[in-house]
Design a protein around this nucleic acid. Structure first.
Lengths: 175, 175
DNA sequence: GCGACAAATGAACCTCGGTTAATTACGGCG
DNA sequence: CGCCGTAATTAACCGAGGTTCATTTGTCGC
């Protein structure tokens, strides 16, 4: 377990979520950072036309927060919901950032967290720009096989960026 | 100018690039972080099939590096090329990260940089997942009007994620 | 102004994914 | 076992964008 995770567990507040409960909704003012102890969270956008797109699945061990909310205090750009009974540790980012001003260990732990976050988003950007829907599905199955089993087909499709029907077609093609 | 930019200028090495020169290529081992003093850089992927996709345009004032290369020392996942005569400041990330271990001001400056980077990638992810090609083009014209003038139609299209022909069609529709 | 080359546009055809709606699995549960 | 609600699949049709190639428009160097 990373130093950063330890810090969160020591200082954070425990938040338990039932399946379907939201940690925060798109538009909320919530600059908490969440550590997932058990269960599964789903981060998603609602578009203007009502469609849902999934940013990421967050299984046990993940850390998540809306970066624009954390950094600038803006409203969250996405919603965070439990898709299984989930226990999390919540901690206001400001507390971390403030404490980091005088605690060099914490500041470097934050650097580690933000670096990892940036790396993950860089990879996702690559996937969205350079891979077809079929490739993205194959990659998901390969890299997160457990997730593919734990969520519905509709959610998988929303993560890949297509409709459930299109995903069904892809699965048929691959067989 | 941010503290982070000042630090880079003080400690970095000046690198001048002619139009078409590369700072690094996809696959290179290059964990420098670059600050763009003047000109314009273009960060892009080459896909397996030879197609080019543009990650981002980096005008004066931008800071860029391959996050996976910076954090893990892995090969760069994209190439960085000058699309105008450009002057940059290059600084190995490891020097920053190491110095941050004992310099709390620097560590917090790094936190600021990484937070901003993550925020930018979060927004890009949203655009790629939730907007149509036409919407992404309109947004680009609105938020970076200068860039739209400085680069070729082909590069604009590669940034949006479509072909130059499709971009031409979109422009016609908008008129 | 003219030739040459690159950039941009246009047209014809194709493919993939979206849309809508019907059909088929797959659980609980009385 | 049969019923019902949900998830998943299939089918038919449409539209946006890709592909290929031709044409037009710039934009230089002379």
């Amino acid at each position: 377990m990373s130093l950063f995770q330890k810090l969160m567990i020591q200082n954070g507040r425990k938040v338990a979520l039932e399946s379907g409960d939201h940690a925060f909704m798109q538009g909320d003012s919530n600059s908490n950072i969440y550590f997932v102890q058990s269960g599964l969270l789903k981060a998603y956008y609602i578009r203007a036309d009502g469609k849902e797109h999934i940013k990421s699945f967050l299984p046990e061990g993940s850390i998540i927060g809306s970066m624009v909310a954390l950094v600038d205090g803006d409203p969250c750009t996405f919603s965070l919901v439990a898709s299984e009974p989930t226990t999390t540790i919540a901690l206001p980012y400001k507390i971390l950032a403030d404490a980091a001003q005088s605690d060099i260990g914490l500041a470097n732990a934050l650097v580690g967290f933000l670096g990892t976050y940036g790396k993950r988003k860089e990879q996702r950007e690559y996937q969205l720009l350079s891979l077809s829907a079929e490739d993205r599905f194959a990659l998901l199955v390969e890299t997160m096989p457990d997730i593919a089993d734990r969520v519905s087909q509709a959610d998988l499709a929303a993560y890949i960026g297509i409709t459930p029907q299109a995903l069904s077609r892809i699965k048929r093609r691959l067989k």
